[in-house]
């Protein structure tokens, strides 16, 4: 008997279930083995779970992010994906990855720590905002209303995680020389810098004063993507498969599974901020 045949026999019931399950909403091997990657890429699983969560009302879901530090390789794909997704200008970053070298040769290693916004439940940043420009939206994501923000940077000072940076109005390519007919030139090249869909809105960000220039900016769990059923940019691009995103109110979701394990921590717990970003160590 071939290996496949043996396997079939061994798990006949599962396969049978797979065959008879109605196609609508069918899930391929819904029960993951001990390794979340076993049956499908976790990205696909999370994508499916995201769709499930979106069927609920916003207040019923609880978005969390889980970062497995054992799997993070410090590649910064997440950092750059976030920059690219949100067209973050020079000096603005939502998700840096800290690298630390530990030990003495030859007993030496490196540690990597990606840091999105913690989306704190008790968020010091929102409390200090004088004009309610930064607040918890109906899904409890901490957002910044660029049109409301006066740019006082109090939230930046208050965030214990350094998760906020200020938009000083820089561009990566725009200032570079123009020379029609010889080179592409700064302004032509920089078209992409003006495409940002943050918060589901278009931000051309032209000029020296147009929001989000002059505002404090931060990670928003890519809610403009989530609403369309796309996982956050840092999550889909995580080549280490170290970043997980989902609804912690869904008992069957990957993130729920992960945060209910003992090897989970949150940063600066002592401050009582109650982050929604968990780390597996």
């Amino acid at each position: 008997m071939s290996n496949e045949a043996k396997l079939l026999q061994k798990y006949a019931s599962e396969v049978f279930a797979g065959l008879v399950a109605p196609l609508e909403g069918m899930e391929i091997s819904a029960a993951p083995a001990e390794d979340p990657l076993a049956a499908e890429d976790v990205l696909v699983r999370m994508h499916r779970e995201l769709a499930r969560a979106l069927e609920k009302s916003p207040s019923e879901r609880r978005w969390v992010m889980v970062i497995d530090l054992r799997r993070c390789i410090g590649c910064h794909a997440c950092t750059v994906a976030c920059v690219a997704e949100n067209k973050l200008p020079p000096g603005v970053v939502y998700r840096p990855v800290m690298t630390e070298e530990i030990g003495t040769y030859p007993n030496v290693t490196m540690k990597f720590l990606p840091r999105p916004c913690m989306q704190c439940e008790h968020s010091p940043c929102t409390e200090v905002c004088p004009v309610n420009a930064t607040y918890h939206n109906e899904e409890e994501i901490v957002v910044v209303d660029y049109e409301q923000c006066i740019g006082c940077r109090a939230c930046m000072a208050a965030c214990p995680y350094g998760a906020r940076t200020f938009d000083f109005g820089y561009h990566y390519a725009e200032q570079l020389p123009m020379f029609d007919g010889a080179i592409v030139g700064g302004q032509t090249a920089a078209g992409y810098e003006h495409i940002s869909q943050e918060y589901g809105q278009e931000w051309e960000r032209k000029g020296r004063h147009e929001s989000p220039v002059g505002n404090v900016r931060k990670c928003h769990f890519c809610l403009h993507r989530i609403k369309d059923g796309i996982l956050p940019a840092c999550t889909t691009t995580c080549i280490g498969r170290a970043t997980y995103f989902g609804d912690a109110n869904d008992p069957d979701s990957l993130v729920t599974e992960l945060i209910n394990k003992p090897n989970v921590i949150r940063l600066k717990e002592e401050l009582g901020t109650e982050p929604r970003v968990y780390y597996i160590v």
């Binding site: 396997l7 396969v15 196609l23 899930e27 391929i28 091997s29 049956a39 696909v44 499916r48 769709a51």
Partner: peptide, 29 residues
């Protein structure tokens, strides 16, 4: 094991493919 699982899902996916609809999960999305 993980390996068996891959095969298993592959088999199932293959069957689904025959029936003309691929990851039905995408449908939900």
């Amino acid at each position: 094991s993980r390996r068996d699982f891959l095969k298993l899902s592959a088999l199932t996916a293959g069957t689904a493919g025959l029936l003309g609809s691929l990851p039905g999960v995408m449908r939900q999305v």
